[in-house]
Design a protein around this nucleic acid. Structure first.
Lengths: 187, 187
DNA sequence: CTTATTTTTTATCATTTGTAAAATTTTTAC
DNA sequence: GTAAAAATTTTACAAATGATAAAAAATAAG
């Protein structure tokens, strides 16, 4: 997905504003396995995914919790770094080799203060992500593990092809063994 | 909490912008039990809590899931109405009689397009809420029911005094019976 | 103050989910 | 192509949580 489409997907910017935003964006490629963000580090990088898929995960003493997948067109940031300039709570790992557009929160903040369209673009981005996470929090609680898996199959079957089941399991809020059990029940 | 403090708590606005924002805000009082928002309705209202406490909850066939509490200084909106002008997924109910400041998303959207400071204020609001929800989603998954309850006691003991345990239980992602069991184990 | 209503606790049992370990399958690297 | 590593499934068992019903406690209403 090209950068114009990614930008406009959040909020359609006037030509001039989009050009200003794009002036700060460059392209970069990383291999599978690369970590874009590391837990407990501050990073003001911002990426947009041209091709590929990534996951954000938090670490626990004996586990990893994948709480977000990013695909073509998605924006990748370390949320707490981006919002508060504080240490992030997540690692973000490439699950495939990725072509990325990149920019920096520093530059973006400057644009937020100079260009009202870009400020509203940033607002819309956060608002849309907010609705998604809130819906997931609610959904997680009112559905059984089986229902959550079925829902994923029907809304995003392609994800199962691209991402290993261990990551899917924690994304759905269950263990890999539980997910495997559920899958065998459905056969 | 007065309206200036509430506004500045999100993002400190220049005097002029704050006055523009305030020009659209009025005060209103509702009794305990009043519903500010109803599930499956579009409402462009926006409230700020001067005094009192509210809860947002989703309905399931045989249950209610409280996923947010709002207190003095918090902003109360129906997220999907606010962001997409679509039917909301939540009810929001006053748990105490509340003094509220109110305005309308229509007015606010106009200000977002006219005043860059207010646009950035709206951006900051969404970003901060986003970090909170994302942290809750992760926390929910990496802690046991007992740990989640202990955490609440230590971070917000006052909440237990103001809100009935049934609501706390679903906020923590467990049944009321589970919460009661956990509480008795701690005695 | 007394009664009615709501909330919370307690108890029992069923179910779901997790843990651990082994077996199997798939993927990766040489 | 083969060996090694990683991922997934399977099994058995344990632990946590949920469902239901009833008792107790707290709150609200008259």
């Amino acid at each position: 997905m090209d950068i114009d489409a990614i930008i406009d997907n959040v909020y359609v910017l006037p030509e001039k504003s989009r050009e200003r935003l794009k002036a700060n964006i460059s392209e970069i490629t990383y291999p599978r396995g690369h970590l874009l963000f590391k837990v407990n580090k501050i990073s003001s990088r911002i990426y947009f995914i041209k091709t590929g898929i990534v996951r954000a995960y938090a670490e626990t003493p004996d586990n990893e919790i994948t709480f977000w997948f990013g695909k073509e067109g998605d924006t990748v940031i370390s949320m707490k770094s981006y919002v508060y300039d504080q240490k992030g709570y997540e690692n973000i790992e490439l699950l495939e080799p990725c072509e990325l557009y990149q920019t920096d929160a520093e530059d973006l903040r400057k644009l937020f203060n100079e260009d009202i369209h870009i400020a509203n673009w940033g607002r819309k981005f956060a608002e849309q992500e907010l609705v998604k996470v809130e819906e997931r929090l609610i959904f997680r609680q009112c559905r059984t593990a089986m229902e959550r898996y079925k829902e994923l199959i029907s809304t995003d079957p392609a994800l199962l092809q691209r991402v290993q089941l261990g990551h899917i399991a924690s994304y759905l809020g269950m263990t890999q063994v539980s997910l495997s059990r559920i899958r065998s029940e459905l056969k």
